[in-house]
Design a protein around this nucleic acid. Structure first.
Length: 458
RNA sequence: GUGGUUGUAGCUCAGCUGGUUAGAGCGCUGGUUUGUGGUACCAGAAGUCGCCGGUUCGAACCCGGUCUUCCACCCCA
């Protein structure tokens, strides 16, 4: 009985055409990473259980894929734990490894373990798959690639500026115009919470504020009330909902609002520096804007927060994000190491490029030349020509069997092969080969002695 | 994790209130065309109706479970 093949929920196969397009994005991103001075590292696909657990909050722990221990692990669990049926206490007894959930925590682990061999500031990039036991939706998978660039060991605000320039450079190379880079600062959020007297509810406060563009001002007020924030406090936020003008104007208004909060004002100063510096340097295709409601990934960010959204008109969540974390390596015992990083959502960028038809035409070609197979004698000559072309770096192939001409032509057509070479009995006698241009439809004859004449036209 | 949604030929989908042999378009194979693809015409192959169970004389259709898809929440790339 044949088994019906299937793949797990939230995972995908990639066809040759898809891999080619994904590689185009990977290569573009990698090139810019290296141009900006980042170095690649890789870490294992699974880590020790304790390395990952507790780093992403309760919600994150739930989404981590755990790997079962080997051997007869159940028999080693004591009866009390076993009969308690509590997943939390049972988990460490049956699992001691887990699949990588993101690239940031493994990177922190890497930095701490290799601190003696690293020259700081350390700029690294990493492009590897990560796994989350999430419920899949469009653009959300259980296995997907993350693509991170981080700098550790420098608290200079120039790094924030550099990372914004890096975003711009990558999206410019990908011909993706109109990307919006949104910028905020955790210190501003903390400052606002302080000023309105809800410092202890910072997370609830920011989570609610983050939803402004989704549920509107009324929705945010309602959610804040439900989370236990008083009406008077919420009332003080009113100017926040109506910030207008350019980034610098908004930051000036924020200064007034944050009077009395040292931390908040520091956050504003930081953003003013970043915005002004970017204005001096200029951006090619992306735009930068302050968004005080931005509050993603609050777990470890301490300074700047970035989020990148697709150009207007494309229904897609964020296609990148990042921020500064002053104490990421602290959890592994290495203090006072500031880091800042950004991430590209490759799978989503792929979907956006696809929707806007921005993949270059020429990456669709699998091979440049296909030789038609006319039989044993003819194909020997064809194979020799194919070898010569390959030595010149031309992607060339010979159809493996002398199938019907129609079938071979159709194969070439379906695979988008731009040139088909014909060497039949007649050509063999004349010592020539015919090249058919599949786009134009015309064909031309060349001498087998001088294939470089054909090479010139490629 | 909560609530909802989807699943019929390789692909996109039709199939009326349960009723005999389950349909279309595209694709595929062959032919018109034995040295020429994309167009046209002709013919053909291909489906355990996601899976398991139940109701019924009878289920693609109704009911339960399960897997999958997509959506909202949660969270996030």
């Amino acid at each position: 009985m044949a088994q019906k093949p299937s793949i797990p929920k939230g995972t995908r196969d990639f066809s040759p055409a898809e891999v080619t397009k994904r590689d185009y994005i990977f290569d573009t991103v990698k090139r810019q990473f290296e141009i900006f001075g980042f170095q690649p590292i890789e870490t294992p696909s699974f880590e020790n259980f304790e390395t990952l657990m507790g780093k992403y909050g309760d919600e994150g722990d739930r989404l981590i894929f755990k790997i079962l221990k080997s051997g007869d692990f159940i028999s080693k669990v004591d009866d009390v734990t076993y009969s308690s049926k509590k997943s939390n206490s049972l988990m460490p007894k049956i699992s001691d490894k887990a699949l990588r959930y993101d690239l940031t925590v493994p990177f922190a682990r890497y930095v701490v373990m290799h601190q003696n061999e690293i020259d700081f500031p350390f700029k690294r990039y990493q492009i590897q798959p990560v796994w989350r036991a999430d419920r899949p939706q469009k653009g959300r998978f259980r296995e997907f690639y993350q693509c991170d660039a981080d700098v550790v060991g420098s608290d200079s605000l120039l790094q924030e500026v550099e990372l914004i320039k890096l975003y711009d450079a990558v999206f410019t190379d990908l011909k993706l115009e109109g990307v919006k880079i949104k910028l905020n600062n955790r210190k501003i959020l903390a400052g606002i919470a302080e000023v309105i007297g809800v410092k202890h509810l910072l997370v609830d406060f920011t989570v609610a504020l983050d939803k402004l563009d989704k549920i509107g001002e009324e929705g945010v007020r309602k959610e804040m009330l439900e989370k236990g924030i008083s009406e008077q406090s919420i009332e003080k936020l009113t100017p926040l909902f109506h910030l207008t003008g350019g980034s610098l104007v908004q930051l000036e208004s924020l200064k007034l609002l944050l009077e009395g909060s040292e931390e908040g004002l520091k956050g504003v100063e930081e953003l003013i520096f970043v915005v002004q510096t970017i204005q001096k340097l200029g951006l090619k295709s992306a735009s930068l804007a302050i968004d005080v409601t931005l509050a993603r990934g609050l777990n470890y960010y301490t300074g700047a927060i970035f989020e990148v959204s697709a150009p207007e008109g494309v229904a897609m969540g964020s296609i990148g994000g990042g921020g500064r974390y002053d104490d990421l390596t602290g959890i592994f015992g290495m203090k006072n190491t500031s880091g800042v990083g950004i991430s590209f959502g490759l799978d989503r960028i792929y979907l956006v490029l696809e929707e806007l038809a921005l993949f270059p035409e020429d990456i669709k070609e699998s091979i440049q030349v296909l030789c038609v197979n006319f039989g044993d004698r003819e194909s020997m000559a064809a194979l020799q020509l194919v070898s010569q072309l390959r030595e010149k770096g031309v992607k060339a192939d010979l159809y493996p069997s002398s199938a019907k001409m129609q079938k071979q032509m159709k194969y070439a057509h379906n695979r988008n092969v731009p040139y088909v070479i014909l060497i039949g009995a007649q050509e063999l006698e004349e010592g020539s080969f015919v090249v058919k241009d599949m786009k134009q439809g015309n064909q031309k004859s060349y001498s087998l002695q001088a294939p470089e004449e054909f090479l010139k036209t490629l």
